[in-house]
Design a protein around this nucleic acid. Structure first.
Length: 905
RNA sequence: GCCGGAGUGGCGAAAUUGGUAUACGCACCAGACUCAAAAUCUGGCGAGGUCAAACUCAUGUCGGUUCGAGUCCGACCUCCGGCACCA
């Protein structure tokens, strides 16, 4: 151990030792309880950014903590290495996507190792390697067998300028993200996974995780699934056998329906119009709306004015028998429900707006449940009138003017009406979902090929399992024309049919990269298995994931896909639970000031406010950078970057390092090896131990809730307390008369806090011990046992501090641990310190005394003090007497061990 | 518009969940050391008030509950996220 702290030396040294000793490789057979700590696997863009550093620092702190607590910790990492950037690099610069990806992985792996994250590198995986994506294909085939993977025509986003397909994200707002051209819809045959089959479970199973996943993530998933309870109702078309099925969540308002409104894409529309005189006008209108819908997609960010047209067709309300007109309008979406709605202007805002514009009747059939206040001085009819004029009344209430249901509560009517619809065969209670099946086909090269073959004779044929993987060719022509580059690789496309051996063509699309990340953390359990995606027995040992950590940008996509995938795996018999992740933490963003402004924004190249982790490692060390990231803000908050903040963390590390350096030799010489008996501890030693054990309890408690910032703060407090304590002891030692003359000691006393005189501090302690013990026993101020006990307390504090620092600054913690006398052992085999409640207990309590709730005095009391004693002491307190003099004491509130409040009049 | 979350010093934030508000750190000011700077150390640091105290006021605003409210209840204001014609 150097006198001075050089992070680059310390960090290199321990990184090497960890690597050589395979310190963080987790065994599947370890008998200790397991803990699976997981961070979201990165896309290998080439460079780690601060968001990654934060993510991994959090995960690593937890992994270290659990390891020190005696858990068998698995902390793996891998690469989400399929995806568009590699292909873009190929198109733009002609590099091979595989080479580009491998180089990026190599560089980022180096960065992670320089950060000293305690990953189990033996379990590293990468999605682009055939031994991984083979299992993507395997899962695809399993789903195909079960009808969970199917092919259908579907519109995709198409940029006419670049001649390429875009994802929904890349065509946000209806324009191409690169060239700004208006995106068109094109119909393509695409593969879908039937996530809608699991819609109900995706909502229902949230109950299993609602305590341990962030509410905002659950909420977004709930919104995304969009579960909605209501009813289907069939309206018969007048003079026809056709029926129009609508979905409504407010069947109780059905007597207020004054029209049926269809979406422009409604399949029945054409047939209905056959007999209509308005046919041409309606068709022209519907065509216009369809075109508009197609070109803008669903991403339109502005609500359009409602437009509609009467078809001239009439429909019959099955409840009232009333005949109402059928309209077509732009505000009804084909994608949701049945693409047709009953329009109830009195009780739906959209219908109200529509009815106003086209002068449709507005009929009120729900009244507010009356409150006493409402009956005052208002003419009810005029109030109704004004209400109806301005708004739809969308609350539940009492059904009126609705035949036999009049006078019933909405909630009651809804149930009874749905039951009647069912009994009479014109409808039923129903649940609809907003979520739609997951389109996984991508017309791209850099992904897992879809393992399907098309044969002229046999049609669509799945590739047999024993022919997996369908290997991606070495390279292809990256023209960027929009068709999958695989289509141009003749060797790949042309194959023979597995069934009939005749000529066949392969599917040339690849799978969405979210497929890779839907199950990757199961692969970590058994990463080299070549006969299954993983051994269910081994996975049973490790999964579900105990703690998952990542950004909330994946709140919907990845985290809903992986929940879906887990349920499919459960149904395949691979796992035995519903939810893959027990606890989820979504960390906040890392932001930095945008130069020349007061704005804090996420670090990015384009804003020029990025900070390179490597620069921080060089300047301050990985330990200081990691410590800062965890200390500066609660993990779920935004983290504002501050270089002076990192300096502060480095300062703290240096302080502790010097303390260990200054004291370790002395501790080796003088500290008792065994824990001394209680009577041998001086009062001073006990007060230090109290601080140590209180801190252990606090830190352990904070860690349980992932309050990492307060954990670090508590550790800083302990180090401050230890320094204060040493200063106090040195001053006391040297206060003996005559010592002023001893050479160097006056400077020592003055300088003890500067920590510039370590050797002198150690020498002084040695000298002092010798001097004390050299005295005749009656003149000694301290006995040998007490000295040994006092140094024991110091060592206890330092060791606890070093162990508790390991999750935040592991390299320097290892260095200090070794220097504290644990040569040859690694910190990972140390044990997390145990808080001793007896030792943590205060000798004396400081009890605040209030008069009428305002703090007026304090008094010191023993922890055993009774309520009565506290009350008496408070009333006799000099300051308190001044306050209560001349007033009547009404009441004295005593909170045991806590506080006294004197209430006066 | 709807649904969430949050408002505490100059800044990031603490507060054992109703009991001493502002821990810990950053920035800043003064001092020590230094030829000087850096580093390090010491002291100060919510506002008002005072030589110093005492004391008064402060957790977005206004009310309420309570002996006691940053914390609980009601109304409002502001900011940040998500969704957005979902029937």
């Amino acid at each position: 151990m150097d006198e001075k702290y050089f992070p680059e030396q310390v960090e290199k040294k321990w990184q090497q030792r960890w690597r050589e000793s395979r310190a963080f490789e987790a065994s599947n057979d370890d008998p200790r309880p397991k803990f699976y700590a997981l961070e979201m696997l990165p896309y290998p863009s080439g460079f780690l950014h601060m968001g990654h550093v934060r993510n991994y620092a959090i995960g690593d702190a937890l992994a270290w903590y659990k390891r020190l607590q005696g858990f068998n910790v698995m902390h793996p990492i891998g690469w989400d290495s399929f995806g568009q950037p590699a292909e873009q690099a190929a198109i733009k610069r002609g590099v091979n996507p595989r080479d580009w990806t491998e180089e990026n992985i190599a560089h980022m792996r180096g960065q992670m190792q320089r950060l000293g994250i305690s990953y189990d590198w033996s379990r590293e995986i990468a999605a682009h390697r055939p031994d991984y994506y083979k299992w993507d294909q395997w899962f695809f085939l399993k789903m195909y067998e079960r009808g969970l993977a199917y092919k259908k025509m579907s519109p995709v986003n198409w940029c006419p300028n670049e001649g390429t397909v875009l994802s929904n994200e890349q065509s946000s707002g209806g324009v191409c993200w690169r060239c700004g051209a208006t995106v068109e819809k094109r119909d393509l045959e695409q593969w879908f996974l039937r996530i809608t089959d699991y819609a109900e479970q995706l909502v229902e199973d949230m109950k299993q995780i609602e305590e341990s996943w962030p509410e905002k993530v659950l909420k977004r998933q709930r919104d995304w699934v969009g579960r909605s309870e209501g009813a289907f109702i069939d309206f018969a078309v007048k003079d026809s056998k056709d029926k129009i099925r609508v979905f409504t969540t407010r069947i109780d308002t059905i007597y207020g329906a004054t029209a049926i409104v269809l979406s422009a894409e409604h399949p029945l529309l054409e047939k209905l119009l056959e007999t209509s005189a308005l046919r041409d006008d309606v068709n022209r209108f519907a065509e216009k709306i369809r075109n508009k819908n197609a070109s803008r997609g669903r991403a339109a960010d502005q609500e359009e004015e409602k437009q509609g047209i009467n078809t001239g067709v009439l429909a019959v309300n099955p409840f009232s028998g009333e005949t109402i007109p059928v309209w077509v309008a732009n505000y009804v979406l084909m994608e949701y429900g049945t693409g047709a709605v009953m329009s109830v202007p009195a009780h739906d805002e959209r219908d109200y707006e529509f009815a106003q514009k086209y002068s449709l009747p507005i009929r009120r059939v729900i009244e507010r449940v009356s409150h006493e206040q409402e009956s005052i001085a208002h003419d009810p009819s005029s109030e109704d009138q004004s209400l109806a004029m301005q708004h739809a009344f969308t609350d539940y209430g009492i059904v009126v003017d609705s035949g036999e249901w009049s006078g019933k509560l909405s909630t009651v009517a809804m149930q009874e009406m749905a039951a009647q619809a069912k009994a009479q065969g014109f409808g039923e209670a129903a649940v609809t979902y907003r979520i739609r099946d997951w389109g996984v086909s991508r017309q791209r090269f850099w992904g897992a090929p879809v393992p399907i073959v098309y044969c002229e004779n046999c049609g669509t044929v799945p590739v047999p399992y024993d022919q997996l993987p369908v290997v991606l060719p070495e390279t292809a022509a990256f023209t960027g024309t929009g068709e999958s580059p695989l289509a141009g690789v003749a060797d790949f496309v042309n194959t023979t049919c597995p069934k009939c051996d005749g000529p066949a063509r392969r599917d040339t699309d690849t799978m969405d990269t979210f497929v890779d990340s839907s199950w990757y953390f199961f692969r970590y359990c058994d990463p080299r298995n070549d006969s299954a995606p993983f051994d269910p027995e081994i996975a049973r040992h490790w999964t579900p994931v105990d703690q998952y950590i990542g950004g909330d940008s994946h709140a919907v996509m990845h985290l809903i896909y992986t929940r879906f995938w887990t349920k499919v795996m459960r149904d395949l018999g691979l796992v035995s639970f519903d939810e893959p992740v027990k606890r989820l933490l979504t960390q906040g963003m890392v932001t930095n000031r945008v130069e020349g402004t007061d704005e804090w924004k996420a670090m990015s190249k384009s804003l020029g406010n990025g900070v390179d982790p490597d620069d921080m490692i060089v300047a301050f060390g990985a330990d200081a950078a990691r410590l800062f990231v965890l200390f500066a803000a609660p993990v779920e908050n935004e983290l504002r970057w501050s270089e002076t903040g990192v300096e502060g963390s480095a300062r703290f590390i240096r302080k502790v390092y010097r303390l260990v350096y200054a004291l370790s030799d002395t501790l080796k010489r003088h500290a008792s090896q065994q824990e001394p008996e209680r009577k041998d501890f001086t009062t001073a030693a006990l007060s230090l131990r109290r601080h140590t054990h209180k801190t252990i309890a606090r830190v352990t408690n904070y860690f349980a809730g992932l309050g990492l910032n307060t954990t670090v703060a508590a550790e800083m407090e302990l180090s401050n307390a230890l320094i204060d304590w040493i200063e106090g002891r040195v001053k006391q030692f040297t206060a003996e008369p005559g010592l002023e003359a001893e050479p160097g000691f006056q400077e020592l006393v003055n300088d003890v806090r500067t920590m510039l005189v370590h050797q002198q501090l150690a020498a002084m302690m040695d000298w002092y011990v010798a001097k004390e013990l050299g005295k005749p026993s009656e003149l000694r101020t301290l006995e040998f046992k007490s000295i040994a006990a006092e140094f024991f307390a110091v060592r206890e504090a330092l060791e606890a501090l070093v162990i508790m620092l390991a999750p935040f600054a592991p390299h320097v913690a290892e260095e200090m641990w070794q220097h504290l006398g644990h040569e040859g052992g690694l910190l990972k085999s140390a044990s997390w310190p145990q808080a001793n409640a007896e030792l943590a207990r205060n000798e004396e309590l400081e009890i605040p005394i209030q008069v009428n709730g305002k703090l007026r005095s304090r008094l010191l009391a023993a922890p055993e003090v009774t309520e009565e004693e506290l009350r008496t002491a408070a009333l006799n307190d000099e300051k308190i007497r001044a306050f209560i003099e001349g007033h009547e004491v009404v009441k004295v509130i005593v909170v045991p061990q806590r506080l006294v409040n004197v209430v006066v009049k």
